[in-house]
Amino acid sequence: MAQRGWFKSSKSGPNCDNCVEVNADMPGVVGVRDSKDPDGPVLLVAPLDFAAFVGAAARGELTSA
């Protein structure tokens, strides 16, 4: 997958080994991938669904199992 448009959160540390990268520069979808495996699989999410996920995370509504 092309490298253009991928970024990690500014809250990710420089030595972070469990980060994801996001690409919102794709037509009609938001791409999400493992930052350690840039040539690996990409999860494609509808923009409104991704925005809802980010909003829920920012409000602290998501918990880990």
Rank of each mutant, 00 (worst) to 15 (best):
K8P: 05
K8H: 08
K8E: 14
S9R: 01
S9V: 09
S9M: 09
S9G: 07
S10D: 11
S10A: 12
S10M: 06
S10Q: 13
S10I: 04
S10Y: 07
K11M: 08
K11P: 01
K11S: 06
K11T: 09
S12F: 01
S12D: 09
S12I: 05
S12W: 01
G13Q: 14
G13Y: 12
G13D: 15
G13C: 12
G13K: 10
P14I: 14
P14F: 12
P14G: 14
C16M: 11
C16P: 01
C16A: 15
C16L: 09
D17I: 14
D17R: 14
D17T: 13
D17M: 13
N18S: 13
N18P: 04
N18R: 15
C19D: 04
C19T: 12
V20F: 04
V20D: 00
V20E: 02
V20C: 02
V20Q: 03
E21D: 13
E21Q: 06
E21V: 03
E21P: 00
E21W: 00
V22D: 04
V22A: 09
N23C: 08
N23F: 02
A24F: 00
A24E: 13
D25L: 05
D25I: 02
D25Y: 02
D25T: 05
D25S: 08
M26Y: 08
M26T: 04
M26R: 13
M26Q: 13
G28S: 08
G28Y: 00
G28L: 04
V29E: 10
V29A: 09
V29R: 14
V29K: 08
V29F: 05
V30L: 05
V30T: 09
G31E: 03
G31D: 00
G31M: 04
G31H: 00
V32Q: 02
V32S: 00
V32T: 02
V32D: 02
R33D: 07
R33N: 12
R33A: 05
R33V: 03
R33Q: 06
R33E: 05
R33Y: 03
D34P: 00
S35D: 14
S35R: 10
S35E: 07
K36L: 12
K36D: 14
K36G: 04
D37V: 11
D37K: 14
D37L: 12
D37P: 00
D37C: 09
D37F: 09
D37R: 15
P38H: 11
P38A: 09
P38Q: 07
P38S: 10
D39V: 07
D39Y: 06
D39A: 12
D39N: 10
G40S: 05
G40L: 04
P41F: 01
P41N: 11
P41V: 08
P41S: 13
P41M: 08
V42L: 05
V42C: 03
L43A: 12
L43W: 09
L43R: 10
L43D: 10
L43P: 04
L43N: 10
L44A: 10
L44C: 07
V45W: 03
V45P: 01
A46N: 07
A46P: 08
A46Q: 09
P47D: 14
P47A: 07
P47Y: 05
P47F: 04
L48R: 12
L48F: 08
L48K: 11
D49C: 12
D49L: 13
D49P: 03
F50E: 03
F50A: 04
F50N: 02
F50S: 01
F50Q: 01
